[in-house]
Simulated scan of single mutants.
Amino acid sequence: MKPMGRVLSAGAIVAAAAAAALLWRSHEEAAPPEPAQPASEAASEPPSVAASAASSAAAAASLPDVGQGAEVPAAATPLAAADIGTALTDLIGRKAVLTFLQVDDFARRLVATVDNLGRTHAPSRLWPVNPTPGRFMVEAHEGDTAIAADNSLRYTPFVLLVETVDVARAVDLYVRLYPELQKSYEALGYPHGYFNDRLLQVIDQFLATPDAQQPIRVQLTEVKGPIPAEQPWTRYEFADPELEALSAGQKLLLRTGEVNARRLKAKLAEFRKELLRRMSPR
């Protein structure tokens, strides 16, 4: 068993599920803006993004530290790559696997996606999930463009699935899968690193994602080059530079909508708590 308890890799099932809800075609293929709705006359002034970020970061920092060097028993029956599809089916059901997941080369896809979620870009070709139906939707709001309220509905089916995942069973599954995950992580370019470490970093990033003023304003990404962007295949970015500076995973989390983001963060916090419980001395 390598340093930093292998049980941390179990976080990948919830991280994958959360990532799937986030990545499930959340890249910005947009429908035309809808007419603006009258603004509330008594709208309260929300806290600044910077203040929310500081508050969220403080909350994440207050979580118990897993630390490095913790040891847990190795899985009695490590999971081979060929058996991953069957194991996922046992966990969430055949229909859910076929609907939501890309099972081929799953360990590599999962490791690469978790790693990329903590960076500035998470390429969709590596995602362990299928595309989300529909397009990213925007609407006019007070003279600007904002993420449409109904856009969050696209992610609701997967968020509901995430909430049904048995965290204890997920931990058991990914203890078995960890040898494949670590192998993929080393092949990704980290021969001396541990996927467990990276996984925990990304989970804590998710938990530290700030709340943002609703609705979230967006703007067309500037296209640099001789070929202009063509409608409706337009790409959007956050108008607020502080939000745009967040990691790819945090921005995707915000795009799922306020309620979905809160539910996904709650599931990740539950999962992290289970990891700590499983790693504590008996």
Rank of each mutant, 00 (worst) to 15 (best):
M1C: 15
M4E: 08
G5D: 03
R6L: 15
S9W: 11
S9G: 13
A16W: 01
A17W: 00
A17R: 05
A18C: 13
A21K: 00
A21D: 03
A21T: 05
L23K: 07
E29Q: 14
A30I: 11
P32K: 01
E34S: 07
P35C: 06
A39Y: 06
A43I: 12
P47Y: 14
P47N: 10
S48L: 02
V49E: 05
A53T: 08
A57V: 01
A59I: 01
S62F: 05
L63E: 11
P64T: 08
A70R: 15
A70K: 08
E71I: 09
V72W: 15
A74D: 15
T77Y: 12
A80C: 06
A80V: 08
A80M: 10
A82C: 13
A82E: 12
D83T: 00
G85W: 13
T86G: 15
R94W: 07
R94G: 03
L101W: 07
Q102R: 03
D104W: 01
L110V: 09
V111H: 01
V111T: 04
V114Q: 00
D115F: 09
D115I: 14
L117E: 02
R119D: 13
R119P: 01
T120R: 12
R125G: 00
W127G: 10
P128M: 02
P128D: 02
F136S: 02
F136Q: 05
E139T: 12
G143I: 02
D150K: 09
R154C: 06
T156E: 09
T156V: 14
F158W: 10
V159K: 07
V159P: 04
T164E: 13
V171F: 14
L173A: 12
R176H: 03
R176I: 07
Q182E: 09
S184R: 02
Y190W: 02
H192S: 10
G193P: 00
G193D: 00
D197G: 07
V202S: 05
I203E: 11
I203H: 10
D204A: 07
A208I: 04
T209G: 01
P210M: 00
P210C: 08
Q214P: 00
Q219R: 15
G225W: 12
P232S: 11
P232L: 09
W233T: 02
R235M: 07
E237W: 01
F238V: 04
F238R: 01
L246A: 12
S247C: 12
Q250K: 12
K251C: 11
L254D: 04
L254V: 02
L254A: 07
G257T: 06
A261N: 02
R262M: 06
R262C: 06
A266G: 07
K267L: 05
E270P: 06
E274I: 03
S280H: 13
